[in-house]
């Protein structure tokens, strides 16, 4: 099951959140398997997928958790925010309500996630031009005001999906590697010594790191 790519430099846990039906699962399947289902089943609880990318010659493995959008699932899904270093907060550009709810999702993250989690606002379904209900500029302004990065994607025609994940993973990588320069970790483990800024400890695969330095 594709488990042989276990050589990596960094392992980042990322969550996909947002209202029901905005296309979270399709963003994930487009990024990890290059697949898209027009009618993909609703996600129950959480689902997991993974993919590795290269940044600055380093292999970054993204462990991505796709979550159920319905309110009732919050108690379960919020448990998965712990240890996540990135979040893609997705809305549907053709459904204004899903954009209005972005504030609620931000509160969810503030309450349950690491305070330094990198958040990217993602306006999905950009292929539905004729049905657009959320202007790009409005969302962009909102993102700037809340220090989020922003992108519009289409899981259906693949527009920007790769870029979205690439950007957020790169951003996390920059923060983590700068942190390493500032506070050189002991040994080879990527382990922040102090409180801030990003805690990647729970997602570091110590087996693999050990393997790399011994072989």
């Amino acid at each position: 099951m594709g488990t042989r790519d276990d050589e990596y430099d960094y392992l980042f846990k990322v969550v996909l959140i947002g209202d029901s039906g905005v296309g979270k699962s399709n963003l994930l399947s487009r990024f990890t398997r290059n697949e898209f289902n027009l009618e993909s089943k609703s996600t129950i609880g959480v689902e997991f997928a993974t993919r590795s990318i290269q940044v600055d010659g380093k292999t970054i493995k993204a462990q991505i958790w796709d979550t159920a959008g319905q309110e009732r699932y919050r108690a379960i899904t919020s448990a998965y925010y712990r240890g996540a270093v990135g979040a893609l907060l997705v809305y549907d550009i053709a459904k204004h309500l899903t954009y209005e709810n972005v504030e609620r999702w931000l509160r969810e993250l503030r309450d349950h996630a690491d305070q330094n989690i990198v958040i990217m606002l993602v306006g999905n379904k950009s292929d539905l031009r004729h049905l657009r209900a959320v202007p790009t500029d409005e969302a962009k302004t909102f993102a700037e005001r809340n220090s989020l990065s922003f992108i519009e994607t289409s899981a259906l025609d693949s527009t920007n999906v790769e870029t979205a994940f690439q950007n957020i993973l790169t951003e996390i990588y920059r923060i983590v590697s700068q942190k390493q320069i500032r506070d050189p970790p002991e040994g080879d483990l990527i382990r922040p010594q102090n409180v801030e800024p990003i805690d990647v400890k729970p997602t570091v695969n110590s087996d693999s790191v050990r393997k790399q330095c011994c072989q």
Binding site: S20, G21, N37, L38, E39, S40, K41, S42, Q70
Partner: peptide
């Protein structure tokens, strides 16, 4: 919510 889920239940 029901209306979102029904069309995609057994694709």
């Amino acid at each position: 919510q029901i209306h979102i889920d029904i069309p995609r239940m057994s694709p």
